[in-house]
Structures are given as structure tokens and as C-alpha cells.
């Protein structure tokens, strides 16, 4: 199918010409992005002196791989990575299981309290994290479970999920409300019970939305800083974001900006690869599902 499309496109030059303005706009933006991110990557191979004299792209003193060695060695990067990977994957899966059904009924049915729940969720997102996280910590720390590694991890995952519930639900609302009711009607005529209809038919149809929100959730959890900072009690359970900020701050206080950018790239790469992988999935999901993009 993909190959067929390519062949067709290659022949159709008029169509490509038609799209030319689009290509130009996107290419300019992409070029700009490349310069900016390229600068970050180039900076991670240079020295602080070059960064602050505008000579990042010239590499006059060669490539400084030692920035990476230093960033990697000064903290427990591999432990942080594993932790974040565990937290993010479990949280994302749980979030879909919890929020997709809720978003579905909120978008489909009118019932007392529907608006209240929606407004409550939105209001919750407006409250700054500090006001949510610190009182919660006061509660949880009183139970004296944070000193047990496994319990501490479980608490963290529970919080990651809970804190993203309003966001994920509100996000998915529109994706369900825009799906045609005719699918459910058809399913009902065929004798399919509503709950089964949801899991078998509606959920797969909302796939673009679900995958998009999963990407966002994943990156949210991966980059979540404040809550992890307050709740992660020991080095064993720390996430990448805390480790990264620790590294970044260390480098900044000592004026080692090249090292700081190296730390950033180390943390950025896996997230980016994951993103690439997930975005492939979107395409697969869209073309595989009942709806076509």
C-alpha cells in the first residue's frame, strides 16, 4: 500500500507542485529547528568558552567527547533511566484503562454531575502543582511507607497516574464526542452490549487520540520534576528528570555549560527515539483502524 502510494506520487508532479507552498513553509521551520537543536548538540561537544564567544559551530578546539563521559559518570544515569522507563510505561497504560472509559461516558451521556465532573477536572488542572503536591506529601509521609523502596515506587506511580487523570480524560473527551453514534447503533442492533461495544469498537476508533495522549503522558511523566523531587526518598527510586536537573544545576553552578548540554542530550535521546517509535505507531493505528487519515 505504502509503495503503491509512493509510485503514484512520483508520477504526479502537478500534485507535488500544488503542495509546494506547504513544503516551503515546513522546510523553513524545520531548518530553523535544526539550527537551534543543532546548536544544542554542537554545544555539547564544545567548551564553555566557545559557547560564550559564539564559536559553537566552528569546533576550533575539536570535539570534546569528555563532556559526555563526565555527565555520564557523575550520576547514576542508568538507574534513573530504568526507573523513569518503568514509571512512564506503567502510568501510561493505567491512565488509558482508567481515563478512556470515563471520557467516553462523559462525552456520550447526559447525567447529573457530568458537568460538575468535567469542571472539577479542569479546575484541578488550574491549581498549581505546589498546592497539590505538598499537602499530599504531608499526608503520605505520615504513613511512614516512603522508606520502603517498593512502596515508594508504588506511591510514585499512583501519583503519576492520579495527577494525569484530569488531563487525559479531558483530552480524550473530544475524541469520543466526535465519533459517529451510528457505530453504537449498529452494534446495538447486532446485539452487542454497550460496554463490549466500547472496548471492541469505540476504543480502537479513538486510537489517534489515545496514542497522541499517550505520547504526551509519557513525556509528562518522564519530565515530571516537582512531585518526584518531593516524593522520591532515595537515589534508588529517583527519576531521570531529577537526575537531569541535578546534573544541569551542578554544571551551571560550576560554569560547565558544555557539560550541561551533554547531560541534556543524554536524557533527550532515549525520549526522542521512543517518540519516533510511537509516532510510527500512530500512522499504523490510523491506517489499520476503521478511520483513514
Amino acid at each position: 500500500m505504502a509503495r503503491e502510494k509512493k509510485v503514484r506520487e512520483r508520477v504526479n508532479w502537478r500534485r507535488e507542485l500544488h503542495l509546494a507552498p506547504g513544503y516551503i513553509i515546513l522546510s523553513l521551520w524545520v531548518l530553523f529547528t535544526f539550527i537551534l537543536l543543532g546548536w544544542v548538540i554542537a554545544a555539547s561537544f564544545s567548551t564553555s568558552k566557545e559557547i560564550f564567544s559564539g564559536g559553537v559551530f566552528r569546533f576550533e578546539s575539536g570535539f570534546h567527547l569528555e563532556n559526555y563521559a563526565k555527565a555520564w559518570n557523575t550520576s547514576n544515569v542508568s538507574v534513573f533511566f530504568t526507573n523513569s522507563l518503568i514509571y512512564a510505561s506503567i502510568s501510561c497504560a493505567l491512565l488509558i484503562v482508567i481515563c478512556a472509559p470515563a471520557a467516553y461516558v462523559l462525552s456520550r451521556f447526559t447525567f447529573v454531575g457530568n458537568r460538575l465532573v468535567q469542571s472539577g477536572f479542569v479546575a484541578a488542572m488550574g491549581v498549581p502543582a505546589t498546592m497539590i503536591v505538598l499537602p499530599l506529601f504531608g499526608l503520605v509521609a505520615g504513613w511512614n511507607i516512603l522508606n520502603v523502596t517498593l512502596a515508594n515506587r508504588a506511591v510514585l506511580i499512583f501519583l503519576y497516574v492520579g495527577i494525569n487523570v484530569p488531563y487525559t480524560t479531558i483530552f480524550l473527551l473530544t475524541f469520543f464526542s466526535n465519533l459517529s453514534r451510528s457505530f453504537e447503533e449498529a452494534a446495538a442492533i447486532d446485539g452487542c452490549p454497550p460496554m463490549k461495544t466500547f472496548w471492541k469498537i469505540m476504543l480502537p476508533m479513538a486510537q489517534p487520540g489515545i496514542i497522541t495522549v499517550t505520547i504526551f503522558n509519557f513525556i509528562n511523566v518522564w519530565n515530571e520534576y516537582f512531585m518526584s523531587l518531593i516524593f522520591a526518598n532515595s537515589d534508588k527510586v529517583k527519576s531521570v528528570a531529577i537526575g537531569l536537573y541535578g546534573m544541569i544545576n551542578s554544571m551551571r553552578y560550576t560554569g560547565d555549560y558544555a557539560g550541561m548540554f551533554a547531560a541534556v542530550v543524554i536524557v533527550f535521546l532515549p525520549t526522542f527515539l521512543l517518540y519516533l517509535f510511537l509516532s510510527e505507531k500512530i500512522i499504523a493505528g490510523v491506517t489499520g483502524g476503521g478511520v483513514k487519515g
Binding site: 505546589t130 506529601f137 504531608g138 509521609a141 536537573y245
Partner: peptide, 22 residues
């Protein structure tokens, strides 16, 4: 030793002390 960093201490110490953390 828990190396909390400036922000970690500044934002986290008082809640932890209030909660009776050791």
C-alpha cells in the same frame, strides 16, 4: 547523605520536617 540540591532543600525540607521525616 541525600544530595537534594538547592531546590530540593528549599522546597522539600520544610514539608519533610513537618511530616516528621527522619
Amino acid at each position: 547523605v541525600q544530595f537534594k540540591g538547592r531546590t530540593g532543600i528549599r522546597e522539600g525540607l520544610q514539608p519533610a520536617l513537618d511530616a516528621g521525616t527522619n
